[in-house]
Design a protein around this nucleic acid. Structure first.
Length: 281
DNA sequence: ATGACGTCCTGCCTGC
DNA sequence: TGCAGGCAGGACGTCA
């Protein structure tokens, strides 16, 4: 499922192709895929707009349009945003298509219909309503070990659901939360406020490393993820915890365990990621 | 503040 | 072979 590395992979692809292109028109095949405005306004306001660039905030793609609007997309589970020749055959999961002025199309496909697009006005990314409550960007300079430790200390919650909370940190999903905890050797149920400075530092390093490595590998194609051109990523070939239940831990050889935490499948090594007793304040 | 659960969806896998 | 049922899961709403 598209998390930060997958969305960043799509962003990079779109950023190579879209700036300078004009959207000639849009067709909404599944109205539910457009969160706001309604499908008619969505079509009308997109037509004739030139694309300036493609940004990302958390798991959101943000396409900057010439007249001050943004086209936002969240891929959720199975969404895909890509560029195709207009004549290329479409599949039955095509939800929104936008004709470009060079004979190509920007296509939003989505098997499970969880993905959403928005057309919103605003100067800065952080002004946009759907993005207002997002936590820090993990690859931003403002996300530091000290800041992570400080925010962890204030939360009385298990670390794994907190990592999945987009208001706490933007961009992690189930795959990379498990991978980061595995790399940091932290138990998914460890209370956030119990992490020492050193453990928070390890977690910070792990989050950044796991995300950068996945971006380098163009994302994980576990479900049906494809980049902006329909290509698979390779990051899933390097996963060490996620969906490796029963397979040996790459550190100690013991089998990876599976646990349900906050209604999410959670994969970890019971030996390398032991639950620690809370250290005194 | 936190967690549990339902909702949205459909392909895929399992079991009979 | 075919079908029923369960599962997966990001975000959000509701409820305790």
């Amino acid at each position: 499922m598209p998390e930060l590395p997958e969305v960043e992979t799509v962003r990079r692809g779109l950023q190579r192709e879209l700036p300078g292109r004009e959207i000639r028109g849009a067709e909404v095949l599944w109205p539910g895929s457009v969160a706001a405005p309604d499908a008619d306004q969505f079509r009308g306001r997109l037509a004739g707009q030139r694309i300036l660039g493609v940004a990302r905030r958390g798991k959101y793609l943000a396409i900057r349009l010439e007249d001050g609007e943004w086209l936002l997309a969240h891929l959720r589970m199975t969404g895909n945003l890509g560029v195709r020749e207009a004549g290329q055959p479409t599949d039955k999961f095509l939800r929104v298509r936008m004709a470009l002025d060079d004979g190509r199309e920007l296509r939003f496909t989505d098997v499970r219909k969880f993905g959403r697009m928005w057309l919103v006005e605003g100067e800065e990314l952080d002004d946009l309503a759907p993005l207002a409550d997002l936590g820090p960007e993990p690859l931003d300079e403002a996300f530091t070990p000290a800041r992570l430790h400080a925010t962890l200390s204030a939360r009385d919650r298990a670390i794994k659901p907190l990592l999945l909370d987009q208001a706490f940190l933007a961009g992690l999903g189930n795959i990379y939360a498990d991978e980061a905890l595995y790399r940091a050797r932290l138990h998914p149920l460890q209370p956030a406020s119990s992490l020492s400075r050193a453990e928070a530092g390890r977690l910070h390093e792990a989050i950044v490393a796991v995300l950068l490595q996945a971006i380098d590998n163009c994302g994980s194609s576990l479900e049906n993820f494809r980049d902006a051109f329909g290509n698979e990523g390779k990051a899933h070939l390097h996963l060490q915890a996620y969906q490796r239940t029963g397979e040996p831990c790459t550190r100690c050889g013991r089998p990876i365990r599976r646990l349900v935490v906050a209604q999410r499948s959670t994969h970890y090594c019971g030996f390398c990621q032991r639950l620690k007793r809370r250290v005194g304040a």
